[in-house]
């Protein structure tokens, strides 16, 4: 690889978990105005998830990067529904139970992929666990941004499931996590560039979720929409600058030799 210092997976995991949970827990404080925090938390989880996808997909999955984004959301949605629904008496525990359930499901699938299907990817178990957990936080965060709260039966079912917004959360959330590595992969792939792109895909997802929030929460959804667009412009510009900087580094390699070596 390169001599550039990369942010360690543990730091990013902490950033994703703490940022994601803070955002989710802030979302129902003063409804509907604080619902935006749910989407901001989800962006933290997107960045963490995208980096975990990067670490595992580097080994070559044989099925393309999108498959891992889809399994992340599949595991995430199952765990998120379970965690939020099961803690009926104390809804505060919901997101944490979801996070733990997702990690357990991810760990089991990772273990099977490594030991039964024999994929021979050393980071498989750890990354599957991280990806599932990030997927669950992304689903809960964006859902909370649309519904204004993460209460399963009172808010999420009528405001996210019944009207089909969940499909958008599922798909756009999966895209946000799988796209950064899918777009950046290659010999000159760099973590910094990928993280900026992950933040920008998270932000554009936030803008789309903002449109859904306008539908469900009314005018206060505009905050999510506008903040999403602003964040997207900022992070896309940063990604753009990184691309230019990295592209400049390979200009001087010369032309392709005329004869085959």
């Amino acid at each position: 690889m390169s001599d550039i210092k990369e942010i360690s997976p543990n730091t990013l995991a902490l950033f994703g978990i703490i940022g994601g949970l803070i955002g989710i827990y802030l979302s129902p404080l003063y409804p509907p105005f604080t619902s935006t925090f749910g989407a901001l938390g989800a962006i933290c989880a997107v960045i963490w998830g995208a980096e975990a996808v990067r670490r595992v997909a580097k080994y070559g999955l044989g099925t393309g990067v999108p498959s891992i984004g889809q399994i992340a959301m599949g595991m995430g949605i199952i765990a998120a529904m379970f965690g939020l629904a099961i803690v009926k008496a104390m809804p505060l525990a919901g997101p944490i139970v979801s996070l733990i359930t997702a990690s357990v499901i991810g760990f089991i699938i990772g273990w099977f992929a490594q030991n039964v299907i024999k994929m021979k990817i050393p980071v498989m178990i750890r990354c599957m666990t991280e990806i599932a957990a990030a997927g669950a936080l992304v689903i809960i965060g964006f859902s909370a941004a649309v519904a204004g709260s993460y209460d399963f039966t009172r808010s999420l079912i009528p405001l996210v499931f019944d009207n089909g917004v969940m499909l958008a959360v599922f798909w756009v959330g999966a895209m946000a996590m799988l796209h950064p590595f899918n777009a950046c992969l290659g010999p000159d792939e760099k973590q910094k560039r990928l993280l900026y792109l992950a933040a920008s895909t998270g932000a554009i997802t936030m803008a789309i979720i903002g449109i859904a929030a306008v539908m469900t929460l009314g005018a206060s959804g505009v905050i999510t929409l506008l903040l999403g667009i602003i964040l997207w412009l900022i992070f896309y510009k940063k990604f753009w600058d990184e691309v230019y900087k990295d592209a400049a580094a390979v200009v001087g390699t010369g032309l392709i030799p005329k004869t085959e070596a």
């Binding site: 891992i68 529904m81 299907i117």
Partner: peptide
């Protein structure tokens, strides 16, 4: 809606596992 979304989740998990295989 809830059953449909859950089915979709199970579907994606079970279509990715064999594709790794």
């Amino acid at each position: 809606a809830v059953a449909g979304v859950f089915t979709m989740g199970v579907f994606y998990v079970n279509s990715v596992i064999p594709s790794y295989g």
